[in-house]
């Protein structure tokens, strides 16, 4: 008996995704021994930071029973407008301040979503589709549509900061930027909130049954509102990190990524009906998507097939459990 494993271990999405990742790595290492090195790992980690932070937010929304497609627009809005703001008033501001303002902008836009969803009760997909274009349209019309590569110096300092860097004896170069700490911080903070606070449990409860949550006295509206504010704040953080690390405030970046991020979260086992989703699963999903986006070529699949691969992964990752559930329901009669 393997009591230390959860009962549904073998049927969980997490297990499936982890399996695919391992399989991918094995094949990749066989076809190109250079794949499995610290260089690749640190490259992939760097690529995963922004997507990872966004995915944590997207997961939270799915757990609460909604779906958000506007977070990329929030991220780019918060990043670009805080950059523009500081370039105008205080170009030498320290980066933590710029980051805080970006996070604040994000939270504000999240509150905009939250108002329509929590207090007006509108369908989340439609609202966030709408705000996606509102945020983007507003940004490009009123704030600016030019790429800015002349960022406040402190942002560039941030992008140079590394936790570790070096070259292994085999000559593999690696570096892990400060931004990795941000992802870690977001994960830890969200984990504590989801597992250890009543607020977090309330989010799961609402995802499980809104009506029941209302009946036992959970403040459903404010909890939902909080979810969108929190997601907005995370998007603001992800956006400014994206801008700093890329050393460019590009108002056209990030938007378009939302479906890949949601794909990562759904692959990790979060369900659209709400109430289900784990950070472990989300991070595994992010890892898989990042690997597919960056290393497909290593296993001999041309980069032009990236979209197809991700699409098929989504269909398999969500289709297999859905089909299994359908069969189980039919069997139960």
């Amino acid at each position: 008996m393997t009591n230390w494993l959860p009962k549904d271990f073998w049927t969980r999405n997490e297990t499936l995704v982890a399996g695919v990742i391992v399989l991918f790595c094995v094949i990749a290492t066989i076809s190109d021994p250079r794949f499995f090195t610290i260089t690749t790992v640190s490259d992939l980690l760097r690529a995963a930071i922004v997507i990872g932070i966004l995915a944590v937010g997207a997961m939270l929304v799915l757990v609460s029973g909604g779906i958000d497609v506007s977070f990329t627009a929030i991220a780019v809005f918060a990043m670009y407008s805080s950059t523009v703001l500081f370039l105008a008033i205080w170009p030498d501001a320290p980066w933590p301040l710029i980051f805080a303002v970006s996070v604040g902008f994000g939270a504000l836009l999240g509150a905009f979503n939250g108002f329509f969803i929590a207090f007006l009760g509108l369908p989340t997909l439609i609202v966030t589709l709408g705000t996606l274009s509102i945020f983007r349209g507003f940004l490009l019309t009123f704030i600016g549509s030019q790429r800015i590569s002349d960022l406040p110096p402190s942002m560039r300092d941030f992008s140079r900061g590394v936790l570790a860097r070096g070259t292994t004896e085999a000559g593999n170069f690696y570096s892990i930027p400060w931004a990795a700490l941000a992802l870690l911080g977001v994960i830890v903070l969200t984990w504590v909130m989801l597992k250890k606070t009543m607020l977090g449990r309330s989010i799961y409860a609402i995802g499980g049954s809104v009506e029941s949550a209302r009946r036992i006295g959970i403040n459903v509206k404010w909890t939902q509102f909080f979810v969108y504010v929190y997601v907005g704040a995370l998007a603001g953080l992800a956006g400014i990190i994206h801008g700093s690390v890329g050393r460019m405030a590009d108002p056209f970046s990030l938007v378009g990524l939302e479906l890949s991020v949601i794909a990562a979260v759904v692959l990790g086992g979060a369900r659209l009906i709400g109430g289900y989703g784990t950070l472990t699963g989300t991070m595994l999903g992010v890892a898989l998507i990042v690997i597919v986006q960056n290393s497909l070529i290593v296993v001999g699949i041309p980069t032009t097939w990236q979209s197809v691969t991700i699409g098929i992964l989504i269909l398999l990752g969500t289709g297999v459990p859905a089909y299994r559930a359908k069969r189980a329901a039919a069997r139960a009669g």
Binding site: L259, I262, A263, V266, V308, G311, I312, I314, L315
Partner: peptide
């Protein structure tokens, strides 16, 4: 949503 999101990518 998921079916057409995935198939749309494909």
């Amino acid at each position: 949503i998921l079916a057409t999101l995935g198939s749309g990518l494909v």
